[in-house]
Design a protein around this nucleic acid. Structure first.
Lengths: 361, 361
DNA sequence: TCACTTTTTGCAAACGCTTGCAAAACGAGT
DNA sequence: ACTCGTTTTGCAAGCGTTTGCAAAAAGTGA
């Protein structure tokens, strides 16, 4: 209501570089240079500017900065949703790293609403963000090419690029699945059900392959009726588990492609009065925080999610700041976390000694 | 490398309003008006512009837009961290609502690093965001005043403003705690331990008050040794539970101020070989997704977290778009969710009938 | 003290968009 | 055909920065 103050008095909350310049008695370009750490500024001038800025409580306007050719110091983050623990962990890592380098985070959720992905991505490239972090994006092909043409920095997390020309951070999905399957086999299981993830996501395929490879290496014939297609969500996990348990000769163990599916499986087993792990062994994948909270505590393949986030963030920032665009790929190794959801099959004896369930009530 | 193309050919990925204007054969101000839904534009012109924009794949540069006095269409989100389920749920709600109105979300995590809150908040007000959503912020007083002076829109979620002049969305913390405590009392418990939250957060105090009120209303003398101070994290919950269980006359039930603390309590009880609920009943608060995953499933007070987020987002957007700044307050009601972590105290008989634990293994 | 470097600083032109103001185009009334 | 209101459109200024270029200041060596 009272904005007709003379230009000399500084309107609180609207301090610009010009105000700082006036107070410091230098030109605004000098202020800009000081604030950006430009080296050819006399030390005394630098101090004057810094003091003035401090005194006025100057805070740069990022929008103007980025418009003028600077960077926006923001990183776009495209995630499927926040409701699965998995993403939360990755974001934690990203967030820590990004804060360290003083970037901001622009959060976009696609909520299974794939149509939006592309338009979000485009928006980001138009000045909003300096780079993009894509967590298990679904329809990459649509915009990967656009990103590359624009020479826009981005890193894919836990998803692979069909053209193999993107920077990627993921983990050893194949090996993790192999390990988990082998673990079950060594416990004595031979009928091991497998609940896949959403098959359009690359890691889902890798996990399936790892499972098959382990079976083969242990001379267990692959039985396609033991493999049912899920989508990484508990509801599907529940349904898949039911299908599996309804089989004429049901599996004695189920390997779910992620923890959420495993939770659905636990639920299904419990609803049938099956005891876990006595009647059914279950292994998950991811090791989200909830995995150790469920009962029985879930044996699962751990992905270093937060670390993946951290590394992806660092890679992206490096690409942004050093303008390097040669795609790099970092694959972190998974680790089998043995908890209480597995035991030798009822009646069967573990051929190699086996691992009795530890802990429990 | 090849940017010396004539101004007539449109550099892909750098389409501006001017390009659209040229193609549409109108002035760029007209394009701006069409794109902003200004009403006095001839229908045929509008179509020409829209077609041109579509054809060129024009995407507005938000930075420029907001610099020029428009809005940034971004909402700042200040959260303590993503690692507690609680915040995740609230964000889910916010995100859904915000997407509906086509705003972007700027995510800031304070990670128990309170020093940063103020500087983040300041940054937001300098053009970055149109409004601010603060989820259980810790040091409100520092910047609330600044926000008000700047006439900057913001909404507090689950935290109260000492000066009572902010828009707030929260839930009936007092009543929720009262209900939970009463539930335990009706089960027959008289020695009910209480683990507080971080007392600098307002709701922590409300919950404590609700607990005390319920005791008083049921003529159970308040015993301060039964109340220990936690901080909403499982580790503290664990420690507090230990302190409580080490008491000469330990409680038969513990009411933890949030689910995370309750998880710590469960752990502590289990580590002592106590059976839940037989030896110790436990109630939490929040009903985060994990509450139904733990064993035994946690009886808790449900806060409609996602709804709180949704409502807060809507309130904020209204304030931004309608320039209303009269603080409003919405308090959603909590609800006791009875699951399997409570039973009458061992040996005692519930005076009012009581609720036997349902489900179980 | 002067010419010549080298360091510092200032000016002005972007960046892509919104918006107040005034001009152009259009219609209607005569 | 000629005004005069209205509806549309265009011009230009400005939002707060960055940055290339050139001018000013400060050093140097003689």
């Amino acid at each position: 209501m009272d904005n007709h103050s003379k230009k000399t008095s500084v309107d609180p909350g609207k301090v610009t570089i010009v105000d700082v310049a006036r107070v410091a008695g230098v030109s605004y370009s000098t202020v800009s240079r000081v604030l950006n750490g430009y080296e050819f500024v006399k030390e005394s001038t630098r101090q004057k500017v810094l003091n003035a800025a401090e005194q006025l409580g100057y805070v740069a306007n990022q929008q103007a900065r980025s418009l003028a050719g600077g960077k926006s110091r923001a990183i776009g983050l495209l995630v499927p949703g926040l409701d699965n623990g998995y993403v939360g962990e990755i974001i934690r890592g990203i967030d820590e790293e990004v804060a360290k380098y003083d970037y901001d985070l622009l959060l976009y959720t696609t909520r299974r609403n794939t149509g939006k992905e592309s338009s979000y991505v485009l928006k980001m490239t138009r000045g909003l963000a300096d780079g993009l972090l894509l967590i298990v994006p679904l329809v990459t092909n649509e915009y990967i090419e656009a990103l590359q043409n624009l020479n826009f920095s981005y890193v894919l997390i836990d998803q692979s690029d069909p053209t193999d020309s993107s920077s990627i951070v993921d983990s050893t999905n194949w090996q993790g699945a192999y390990d988990a399957t082998q673990y079950l086999i060594e416990l004595g299981h031979t009928r091991i059900g497998f609940i896949t993830g959403l098959m359009s996501i690359h890691s889902a395929g890798d996990r399936l392959d790892g499972y098959r490879a382990a079976l083969q290496d242990h001379n267990i014939p692959y039985d396609s009726t033991l493999v049912v297609e899920g989508d990484f969500w508990p509801e599907a996990g529940y349904a898949c588990a039911e299908a599996l348990l309804d089989l004429p000769e049901p599996p004695t163990a189920i390997f779910a492609s992620n923890d959420l599916s495993a939770f659905g499986t636990i639920e299904a087993a419990r609803d049938r009065g099956l005891d876990i792990p006595r009647d059914l062994s279950i292994v998950g994948f991811d090791d989200i925080p909830q995995a150790s909270l469920v009962y029985p505590q879930l044996t699962t393949v751990r992905q270093p999610l937060d670390q993946m986030g951290r590394i992806a963030a660092r890679m992206l920032i490096e690409e942004i700041e050093e303008h390097r665009h040669s795609p790099r790929r970092v694959t972190l190794s998974t680790q089998l976390i043995v908890r209480n959801s597995c035991s030798p099959p009822a009646g069967g004896t573990p051929p190699f000694g086996g691992f009795p369930p530890t802990g429990g009530i």
